[in-house]
Design a protein around this nucleic acid. Sequence first.
DNA 1: CAACTCGTACGATAGACATCGTAGTACGGG
DNA 2: CCCGTACTACGATGTCTATCGTACGAGTTG
Lengths: 119, 119
Amino acid sequence: MTTAAPTGSSRDLPHPHRGEIRLEAVLHALSDPLRLQVVRELAADGGELSCSHFDLPVTKSTTTHHFRVLREAGVIRQIYRGTAKMNGLRRDDLDDLFPGLLDSVLAAAARQAARLGNR
Amino acid sequence: MTTAAPTGSSRDLPHPHRGEIRLEAVLHALSDPLRLQVVRELAADGGELSCSHFDLPVTKSTTTHHFRVLREAGVIRQIYRGTAKMNGLRRDDLDDLFPGLLDSVLAAAARQAARLGNR
DNA sequence: CAACTCGTACGATAGACATCGTAGTACGGG
DNA sequence: CCCGTACTACGATGTCTATCGTACGAGTTG
């Protein structure tokens, strides 16, 4: 299935180059509750998750929109793998540009979730 | 008589209680370039600065707006001192709620400023 | 090929936000 | 007591954003 090629998908998605990632855009991307939740799950998983894995309380159109915001801000990397689109955190790039930032935000999110009664 | 009250000012500004500060609101407040710049200057100073100390490329109305966003997000504390309004970072509260977050953001901002040619 | 799944594109809409200008309020000093 | 300084309040405006619905495109599989 799909031979052994690296998912020779022809559909490519535009990602900002590492040097183009702006702190303000990253913070803005993370300031939305749904997007922050997505990032938390991606971080917890550590690997790649398909868009459909997330059960967000919005329509698919809106989900697409949020994933694009995350991708264009440089927070996640998206690649097509067959019919699914896989999402992964750009940990390497973010840690290189802003050391400790992602971990602090994730820790803060976890802390707040615990404080407010995580469910 | 406010006896030994600190600057017995009668004008009080509404601040969120420590437990009401939301991570998303903080991130959103910091995602604006002007507000991030203000926070950086406040952090660098360490103390309190008046609104008029900042030379932002916007009108005073807009400046007022940005300071209110920062205050309502719980990032800064504002108090009237005579005719001036002094602004200070809520380091204690932020560090307690989200340890390391503020420092990471400040470090990231400094890093990006250096990378993009700070002037 | 046809059907199905996954996700996109586009258009619409309501709300939020950054910005301004003008008019007004609070304080302190001459 | 009047004026200047510092900041606010309000209204207007253009832009951005989150959301939806419907129609479509790309892959996989029967």
